[in-house]
Structure formats: C-alpha cells, structure tokens
Design a protein around this nucleic acid. Structure first.
Lengths: 221, 221
DNA sequence: ATATGAGATTAAGGCTGAATTAAGCCTGGC
DNA sequence: GCCAGGCTTAATTCAGCCTTAATCTCATAT
C-alpha cells in the first residue's frame, strides 16, 4: 500500500512517516505543493494525505487539479483550522476524508484503513476479510477459523494488498509499485519470494499464478 | 491486435511497451516522426498511439498526412500540454482520442480498449460480447453464462480479435499480420493450432473454416 | 473414385518466466 | 556493540506455453 504524504511541517511529517511505516505503508513524503501536484499525478499511489497549508501551491488547488485530470486516488485532507466552511470546501474539491490538527497518529491510520477499504468497495467491514481469511491490521497477523497465523511485515504488506484486491490479476511490476516507495529498486524477485512464503503459510492455492500476467489471490475456493 | 507506438521518450516508451504487451497487444515502437509517417501508412495497424512532440516531424503533421492519404486507423494522441486549443487542433487533424501527460498506463489501456471497440461499431458495451461469450479483458478470460473459461495469452489474443470481427471471414495471413508484431515470422501453422485450442475450449462450431479463404467466428448460433 | 492440397491434430522441443533454496546484509533489540 | 530474525539478492531448478513439425483427415475437383 503506497501513500503520498504532503506536509510541510518537518517534525509532524517525521512523526507521521514513522507511524505509517510501522503500519506497513510505503510512504513518499513531499513538502512542496508544486512537487506534489506532479508526483501525485504520475506515481500510482493508493492514497494521498494532503495538508492544506503548503508552500508553493495551496493544497486545495492541487487537489482540484488532480480531480480535473481524472485522478481517483482517495485523498485525506489535514488542516489546522476546524471551521465548517473549510471542511465543505475540501469535500467539494474532491477530498474523501478530513482530519483537523491536532490529532493522534493512530487516528490517521484508522482513517486510512477505512478509506482504503471504502475505495475498494468494502463497506462496513470492521476487519478485512477475503478467501476465508481475516486480517488483523493492528496485530499484523491473519486468522482462518480460530487458528491465528503470524506474518512477517513483508508478508503482511503483500497479503493486505492481495486481500484488498481479491480476484484481480496483479502483475509483479504492479505489486512492486504499490508495495515499495519511490526510493526502492525494481529489478529483483522479492515479490516471488514473499508470494512463496505466503503460499507456505496459507496454502499452495491461495495465490494463483497467471504466467506472463501476474498473480491472482482468492479465486480457488 | 497490432499497435504502433510513436514516442521519443525511451523510459516512457519502455513502460508503455511493457504494459501494452502484458495486455496482449503486439506493439511496434518508433521514436522518429518520419519513420512513423511511412510505417503507419504501410503496415496494417489496428490502432496508433502518437506523441505530438517528436523529433523528425511534428506528430500533428504526420497525422494530417495519414488522413489525407485516406488512412482510417484509429489514432490516440499523447501530449504534454493540456490546453483546449491543442486538443481541438488534434481532433481537427483527425485524432480519435486524446490523453495528456502525465497519465497512468492503465488509463491508456482503457482508452485503447474503448477506441478499438468504437472503431468496430460496438458502442456502449462495457465488456466485449459476441456469440454468447463475454470477454473479460482485465482478467484475460471468457465466460459463457456463469461458467468462466481460462485462456492462455495466445488464445486470448486470437479470441479478442475474432470477437471484435465477429461474422467476418479472416484469412490466416490477415490474422498473422494483426496478431504478431513486425519482428515475427509468418510461415507456420500457429494460427491453426490456436484456433484448434479455442475450438476445444469453446466448442467445435465457434469458429467456422472457409476452406481456402479463412476462418469465421460466431455465425453458427 | 481418386488425387491433391488445405486444414486438423498431436506430440516434442525450446524458451521464457516462475519457484525454490541458500547465503549475505541490514535492522532493531538487548 | 553484539546477536537474531527477516528482507533481499542471486543462482539454480522447475514448469507452462508457444511454436514447430510430422502425420492424419477431409473437401474439392478432375
């Protein structure tokens, strides 16, 4: 799950980066509105966290431009002011959720979880479920029936992405783009290795291979 | 489905080639406007993706020449600039669709899908349907009623072409030209073999053979 | 009816992409 | 600063699919 964090306050950004990374998100951080406008349109983010008070360009302005370009990535807005007017402007400009400073980083994580699920059409699910599995995002483990299975963080990240996109064919390139941040290399077989680990823990047929196309999760049963 | 990609940026071209190839398109790539003007007029492409900012000759100029020659192949224009004026110039010169950079490769695939269908007179069909079959282009499989049938990528490519040209007689030479790119050999019985595989999966009479002329899809039922 | 050639069928080979394993490196905890 | 676990890399093994090619069948014409 790859996020773009647009926030000019360095200490806050640091704190959020740490928190989000611990939750298993790959986060790119930008402080400038102009950079953000470009990068948000080009890189395939799963969600964007956007502060409204930015140098370079106003956050609202950037958001409007993205929506005009047809970008449908969920956007969560951060703002210092809490007035109703601001909030309505944000939603009108195409924001999907809204958080007023100050807030706890965990609150942000929860909103992000919800937003990502809603974006995939999974409403009213307290926990992420697919293919007989139930993912515990706070403990980073997965359970089938009443047995609980431990996951390493790489496995957790990959499985979460699969469960959010159950039934879809996902190429290794696509998975690499959405599981690793902008700094990472892209020529390796990491995905294959972790797919292999997930199959070992959850069963050979939990992930199907479509040769030359990619992987598909949760179609066997 | 054979495409010509005219784009001078090497990294972008690489990315698009990879994406389009995975979608089952046979893609020829040219970086120069003069080469493109010639090859686009000579080779039987199903669609052309044309960048406007090119070395050699302007993309718009090339497009105008093609249209003056009576070439009716659908053309999708890529451009860095997003102004209305540009857009109108492009459409006036004979473009069928228009995409402004930056964009996501999946967006391009979707536009191409739509354009190919429109070019065959299939409007407002979210999925490609013919002869009681419904083709899922994202999952590269086909369904009849509620049974889903897996396809290998060669089968998918061939079947998509047949479904877009249902009822028409298609010679093996024609199929070879439209399913394989410029680098491929043309003296083999590949088409026959894959036609055979499709008949095995979808029923003997899904493809009729007109001896000495070619094949015809979707006339039996 | 038979000959001819086009198309159908089948199986083998090779290529390419994926699975697997092990080793090295990095990180986080003590 | 050391140790352990796990992420990543790299090398090898494995498997699926595409293509080829050889053989068989059938349609058509003479």
């Amino acid at each position: 799950m790859r996020l773009l964090l647009v926030e000019d306050s360095v200490p806050l950004a640091d704190e959020l980066m740490a928190s989000l990374t611990r939750q298993g998100y790959a986060v790119d951080w930008l402080a400038d509105g102009r950079d953000a406008a470009y990068q948000g349109a080009v890189e395939p983010y799963d969600l964007i966290v956007l502060d409204l008070g930015l140098p370079g360009r106003s956050g609202l302005d950037v958001l409007k431009e993205w929506r005009a370009q047809g970008l449908s990535t969920p956007v969560l807005i951060l703002t210092a002011r809490s007035g109703w007017a601001e909030r309505i402007d944000g939603l009108k400009a195409g924001a999907d959720d809204y958080l007023t400073k100050p807030f706890h980083p965990e609150e942000l994580s929860l909103r992000i979880q919800g937003l990502l699920r809603r974006a995939r059409g999974l409403v009213n699910q307290p926990t992420l479920q697919a293919a007989g599995l139930s993912l515990d995002e706070s403990r980073q483990c997965v359970s089938r029936g009443n047995e609980s299975i431990e996951l390493t963080s790489a496995e957790f990240r990959l499985l979460r992405y699969f469960m959010l996109h159950a039934g879809q064919i996902l190429s290794k390139g696509h998975l690499g783009e959405h599981l690793y941040d902008g700094e990472s290399e892209r020529d390796s077989n990491v995905i294959e290795v972790h797919v292999n680990h997930l199959r070992r823990k959850l069963g050979r047929d939990i992930i199907e291979t479509r040769r030359g196309q990619g992987y598909r999760f949760g179609t066997s049963a």
